[in-house]
Design a protein around this nucleic acid. Structure first.
Lengths: 247, 247
DNA sequence: GAGTGGTCTAGACCACAGC
DNA sequence: CTGTGGTCTAGACCACTCG
């Protein structure tokens, strides 16, 4: 690595380990390292970049901390993948009131490609005229319909998805995005509100109009901070709750 | 530090830096290090415990990561305190729909000491017969009443609080717990549900009965995993939302 | 200038996985 | 056995803070 000579005095100085981290992040973003891949070993990377193993370790530590990499002692360092566990513990906060986390089943109601609305363009950072693929689905917990969910995906990144058979769409979409479109969701922001069930919600969830629902507005983010998905989930929290830890 | 000789082969081996971390945690729990205190410098601690500075650093790194300590280059390492910033960014997820975080004003409605209910004993891990101090308050954002909040505290830990003048209770309680009762909230678990406003909510929040509210059920945890506070906040999310990041 | 944390290195030994 | 990550050390130099 070019130590950018005079590493410290330089005006736009970044610590070496952050430079290493950036390099790895770039390779992840460019899909040179794909989900599930084994990275070069620490001594190997240290040699390749001309830094000490400790510096590599520190860079990897941060990436592991961000759940982008996974280490296995004796085996190596791997690019993180969306396993069921990760879906369950990181991206699915809805929990049975008894404390059990369950992976919901999904039934796709509709799948289509459309012109984007202003709101979609805002959430997904699309240009005017950008198209979206919309998915509507119902998710069941304990075989009860609990979530009524509308997703919007940027059509340019998920090209062809609209032609898939709705029944083919898997339960855990993020893994699907990874394998079919090479798009890794690494992050998401959720905004929660209490709302009231409309006729549509009521019909799909088997409840009365006007019942309170927990609305989860999520934007899922990929590498380089690119928004990959916007979903609004309206959840019947009569027997479930959204669980989160502060700190 | 006793390297617990044969550090590795020993059956109940813990890495040195975790042992160091445990020692510091114990001293934090015993209030030998109080919020805001300056810790001994890294070289000093290394010498005291007979380990290298790198090991101390790694232990401190973890504690900083858990927001229990704060480092200031050139000054030292301090025990974390509940500043306004921390309240705002770690414990207050309610956000204006325009994206601004606001510190709510509070008006205490009632303050009393009572026999605990089963639910309180469950949430606060109290014995049968344990007493609680209950606080009810309304919190305003932009001078609108938005949150109707009921808190329960274990009376044995907060002895005398019930005799304070309600108007005296500050806005940010966690700092108050720290300074008056030497109890530091280091963690909290929140469970969210959508509920319906009852007459009481409606009266205090100036809305109609039956409107949807976001109910936040929080248990705040101190050192050694001791529950310090249970609060249920019922929030009118018409113009606000609960914001959270997944990873 | 003295002391603090922040970065970086080189090298040692250990624990774990897999051939 | 070899190679991987995990821990630990000792020592260097830098950046920041304060008197």
């Amino acid at each position: 690595m070019e130590h950018s000579t005079k590493p410290f005095t330089s005006p736009n100085f970044r610590p070496l380990y952050l430079q290493v981290k950036d390099i790895i992040l770039q390779r992840l973003a460019k899909n040179e390292f794909k989900p599930g891949d084994l990275l070069p070993s620490e001594p190997r990377q240290a040699e390749m970049l001309g830094v000490s193993q400790g510096t590599i370790k520190k860079a990897l530590d941060e990436l592991v901390g961000q759940n982008l990499l996974v280490r296995h002692q004796g085996k190596g360092t791997y690019v993180a993948t969306h396993t069921v566990d990760r879906a369950l513990f990181h991206f699915l906060r809805l929990t049975n009131d008894n404390g059990h986390r369950l992976l919901p089943d999904s039934r796709v109601v509709s799948l289509s490609k459309n012109r984007s609305t202003i709101q979609e363009r805002d959430k997904l950072c699309l240009d005017k005229g950008g198209q979206v693929i919309r998915i509507t689905r119902i998710r069941m917990l304990d075989s009860d319909p609990v979530i009524h969910e509308c997703l919007s995906l940027p059509a340019n990144r998920f090209s062809g998805l609209e032609n898939h058979a709705p029944a083919e769409l898997p339960n855990t979409l993020y893994r699907y995005y990874e394998s079919l479109f090479h798009l890794a969701v690494i992050n998401a922001t959720e905004k929660l509100k209490a709302v009231v069930a409309d006729e549509n919600d009521a019909k799909h969830l088997g409840i009365e109009c006007g019942r309170p629902l927990l609305e989860i507005d999520r934007v899922a983010i990929g590498y380089e901070n690119i928004p990959l998905e916007w979903r609004v989930s309206r959840c019947n929290t009569a027997h479930y709750h959204y669980l989160t830890d502060l700190e």
